[in-house]
Amino acid sequence: MSTQIPEPETEAESEGAESETAPAETLPPAQQARLQRKAEERADREERAREEAEEEASSDENTYHLKVFRYDPEVKGKQEPRFDDFYVPFEKGMTVLDALIHARDTFDSSLTFRHSCRQAICGSDAFFINGSQRLGCKTQLSDLDEPVRVEPLPHAEVRKDLVVDMEHFFDQMESVEPFFQTNDLPDDELEEQRQSPENREKVKMSTRCIWCAACMSSCNIAAGDNEFLGPAAINKAYRFAMDEREGEDLKQHRLNIIEQEHGVWRCQTQFSCTNVCPKDIPLTKHIQELKREAVKSNLKFW
């Protein structure tokens, strides 16, 4: 049986319960004692039920134990960060996102997180799972040790539960002009702007970015420098700077963007972004290639 372990009563709640069950002073002593005894028996039953539910859930081989970060700044009593325990029924092929959806639909409808396609394409369900940035829809429960600890992405402002503010990340992406441009349009507007197979192969991996921000969250430089463009934005600049169809002038324009003080030169080649990328993009390699291109563009004789 799947269940959420009930929260222990707070001191205030316990006092409230006692005041509600306390006998009126006007009642005869025998009746007061009887009411007090019933209240104690009820408290004992509730405690035993809680312990039995916890023991049953924790010993059930068909359930997985989730510890989920909770925070709601708008609800009194939930404004302090905490972790809630959920025990969800396990089925083969179940992902962390599946487990979160079950916990929300079955135990607590206020549990808040982003998700959409459930196929590792939309990038909306990146979480900090067991100490690493991962996509909830791509991470199998069976690959994780219990309890499965699910937290919002680090280095981002938490809005509620597992939802973080993505505005800064999107601003950094937008700053590198993440769209195709060209100064060399064909005379015939119906003619294709052809790209060689070799050049397509060069930029192919960089096009796989799904804007999940896992790389940005894992980056120690981004954690300490809020203006750092970040791996995702630099990778997007790489995707177009290396596209032969844009031409040398636009390539130089993009290099100027990423050469700024908080651009590629801030990267310390720690590979954390590459390690967590759910699409296996060689982000660190792309950053290093852009550094080389920037050096070449500044050494005019190269």
Rank of each mutant, 00 (worst) to 15 (best):
E198G: 03
G93I: 04
R159W: 02
T112F: 08
Q195M: 14
E227V: 01
G247V: 10
N220C: 03
R292G: 01
D165L: 08
E15S: 07
V68T: 07
P89G: 00
R104P: 01
A120N: 08
A43D: 10
D143R: 11
R42E: 15
F169G: 12
R104N: 07
F170K: 14
G224E: 04
C122H: 14
S2R: 12
E189W: 07
S196G: 11
V68G: 07
D225V: 13
N298Y: 02
N235K: 00
I258W: 04
R82F: 09
R149C: 08
I234K: 03
Q270F: 10
P6C: 06
A222T: 04
I221D: 06
E174S: 09
C267Y: 05
P154R: 01
T3S: 13
H253V: 08
V158A: 06
M94W: 03
G263C: 01
C122S: 14
W302N: 07
G247N: 11
K160E: 10
E174G: 01
I210V: 14
S59K: 14
T269R: 07
M173W: 12
M205D: 14
A237D: 05
S2N: 12
S2H: 08
M173R: 12
E13Q: 15
S132Q: 14
Q119G: 10
E47R: 15
T112M: 07
D187E: 15
R149Q: 08
R114T: 09
T3G: 13
L135H: 11
